[in-house]
Design a binder for these strands. Structure first.
Ligand code: SF4
Ligand code: SF4
Lengths: 151, 151
DNA sequence: TGAACCCGGACTGTAACGGTCGTATACTAA
DNA sequence: TTAGTATACGACCGTTACAGTCCGGGTTCA
């Protein structure tokens, strides 16, 4: 419950890895997979999905691989999760697929939808660059962000 | 991914239902289940868990049932989820159970832990009373809350 | 006593997740 | 031109967690 998919997890790791090496033209899926110990074939598929959604640019052939299609600061964790796992909802009453059948009688779906929106806001406010820059050696506090929650 | 369990969902509904009827001594699991269309046996087990965690008080026998053990304002959604689904983590590297095996090489677990903490904060700031009072007929905005996020 | 209620474990079907395999395609360096 | 390196894509499968059911107990009260 309320757990991130490992695929999304891996995707974030890969993007961070790319963000830390902005000068390299492209990195192959195998390179990134080896760097962390992620199953290579699985990572490959994840990167393909990210490419299809426009977050990455791919290049086949020798010395090919993947590169960010946007600056790291303008890629949010939300986009990544969305691209990999599809639209995400805290509850099962999504209106899209087969939602729960007691939607009409339910009285908490509106409040929960706000919570959903809030969490999405949290994810949206985190960029890949935030992840890549997470080293604060001198101990100074990084940028704190504010999220508003309205029940 | 990132989806609330239906059990937790049902638990929140039940607590809200109880919070709206503070005068009744006790309500049986079947009563609440019938009110919404939740499978009765399933709800029963959920309420038992909540009782074991101290969020509810139970009373067996005729005219028995469940009642809140605390005022609705002091029960957070976080507690409910925690009681039903156990300690929740966004990632799989919990250190408790069988976490993912690439924890040592992973470079994003600390930032994600902060995100986890933030989401937990969101849940903690929502009380059952907030859910029960969600009717704003006159259209006035309800209490907005602030959550700080530090990457 | 018995009806109405709580308690708890065992059990099962289903679907999503994590991961693998195989093959087709694209590019490029030699 | 050809070999090698890479992406692209779909099919496949084992495991696990979730949602729900069943049943044999205990309690309380009328
Ligand atoms: S309708 Fe209510 S019970 Fe059903 S998934 Fe949505 S919030 Fe949960
Ligand atoms: S260690 Fe890294 S990859 Fe593994 S679960 Fe934690 S965050 Fe995800």
């Amino acid at each position: 419950m309320l757990k991130l998919t490992k695929k999304a997890d891996y995707g974030l790791m890969a993007l961070k890895y790319l963000a830390e090496r902005p000068d390299t033209p492209a990195l192959s899926a195998k390179d990134i997979a080896d760097a962390y110990g992620i199953p290579a074939q699985l990572l490959a598929k994840i990167l393909q999905q990210l490419t299809k959604k426009g977050l990455l640019k791919s290049h086949a052939g020798m010395n090919g691989g993947y590169a960010l299609s946007k600056p790291a600061a303008s890629i949010s964790a939300y986009e990544v999760i969305l691209a990999i796992d599809g639209p995400f909802f805290i509850t099962s009453c999504t209106k899209g697929a087969h939602g729960c059948d007691l939607t009409p009688s339910c009285t908490i779906k509106e409040p929960l939808a706000r919570v959903n929106e809030t969490i999405a806001g949290v994810l949206k406010s985190i960029s890949i660059q935030d992840l890549a820059e997470h080293e604060h050696p001198s101990g100074q506090a990084p940028e704190p962000k504010l999220v508003t929650l309205t029940i």
